[in-house]
Design a protein around this nucleic acid. Structure first.
Ligand SMILES: [Mn+2]
Ligand SMILES: [Mn+2]
Ligand SMILES: [Zn+2]
Ligand SMILES: [Zn+2]
Lengths: 146, 146
DNA sequence: TTCTATTTGCAAATCATTTGCAATAAGGGG
DNA sequence: CCCCTTATTGCAAATGATTTGCAAATAGAA
C-alpha cells in the first residue's frame, strides 16, 4: 500500500539525507519527491518528467540518486520501463503489484508469501541476502468485459 | 527445473507446430531449439546468437515466434535483457530462479508459493487470468567469501 | 523444376537510459 | 551579502537491447 507520509517529512528527510551524502538540495530533487508523493502507484521517469520542468536526463539522474538514498524504490513490470515509488522513512518499500495486461491498471498488493519459502530456498542453495521480486498480472474488471 | 526432453521430440514438435501456424521449418528455428536444449538455464538472444551462424535479428524474430508457439519461455531478471528457456511439450514452463547479484549465477527453482495467495488476490480485486512473475536474488556461495 | 509466400540478412530505426561537457547554481567561508 | 569551489543541470550524442523496412534467398506446394 502506498504509505502517504506527511509532506514536510519527506522534504526535511531529503535535506538531512542529502547532507549526509554531501550532496545538494536542488529543485529537481525536491520536485520529483513531490510528484511521487501525489501518486499511489509507481511512475515512469517519463511520467515524472511530464509533471516537471527539467531535463529528462536530470530526472533519471535524480531518481538514481534517490534510489541509492533509499527514498524511492524501483519496480519492474517487465515492459522494459522502470517505475518509481516514494518510500516512507523507515520503509524498505517491499511490496508487489497486480497489473492489468490490457490497460496497465495497477493495484497495490501488500500481501506476500510466507517468508520461510525464501529462507528455505536460500539455505538449500547456500545463498545469502536473498530477496525477491514478485508481480502479478491479469485482466482487470473493466478489461474482462471486452 | 529444466525439463530435458528428448532431442527428436522437440524437432518433430517444432515441425508439427510450425505446420499448424502455416509457417516454415527453417534452419535458424531448428538450431535455436537445439542450442536451448543443451542449456539448463535461460539464455539471452545474444548468447544464443553466439552459438549460431545467422543474423541477430533472425534470432530475435525466431525467439518471438517460438514464444508465441509456446516452445520457449521468456524470463526477465530485471537487467534489461530477456532470457529464453526451452519448454517441454505439455509444460507451461512456470518456474522461478535464484540469481546471484554479483556473478549472475542462476539456480533453477521449482518451488512456488501456495496457489491460494494468487487466487485470493485475484478475487479480492476482481481480476481474471492472474499469473505471476517471481525471481529471487542473493549472493551465491562463491560471492559471499569476497 | 517452377512459382509464390515466407524468411533472412543487413542496415537503419526505436526506446529507455546513460554519459560527456560546458554552462549554471548551491552553499560554506569570509 | 559576496566569492569560490564543486556539484548539478541542460543538451546532445552515445549506448544497448530489440524491432523494422526492404530486397535477396529459400521453403514447400504444385
Ligand atoms: Mn506500489
Ligand atoms: Mn529456468
Ligand atoms: Zn485493464
Ligand atoms: Zn555469485
Amino acid at each position: 500500500m502506498a504509505t502517504h507520509t506527511h509532506p514536510r517529512q519527506n522534504l526535511s528527510d531529503l535535506t538531512a539525507r542529502l547532507r549526509q551524502h554531501a550532496q545538494r538540495i536542488t529543485g529537481p530533487r525536491q520536485l520529483i519527491l513531490e510528484v511521487l508523493r501525489r501518486e499511489d502507484h509507481p511512475l515512469t521517469a517519463r511520467q515524472i518528467h511530464g509533471q516537471l520542468d527539467c531535463d529528462l536526463a536530470t530526472v533519471y539522474r535524480s531518481l538514481r540518486l534517490l534510489e541509492e538514498m533509499a527514498m524511492v524504490k524501483r519496480f519492474d513490470f517487465g515492459d522494459g520501463t522502470a517505475r518509481f515509488e516514494l518510500l516512507g522513512q523507515n520503509d524498505d518499500g517491499h511490496h508487489h503489484h497486480l497489473v492489468c495486461r490490457e490497460c496497465s491498471t495497477v493495484v497495490e498488493i501488500g500481501e506476500c508469501f510466507s517468508g520461510n519459502l525464501e529462507q528455505r530456498i536460500a539455505r538449500e542453495h547456500g545463498f545469502a541476502d536473498v530477496s525477491h521480486r514478485l508481480e502479478f498480472f491479469g485482466l482487470c474488471p473493466d478489461c474482462q468485459t471486452t
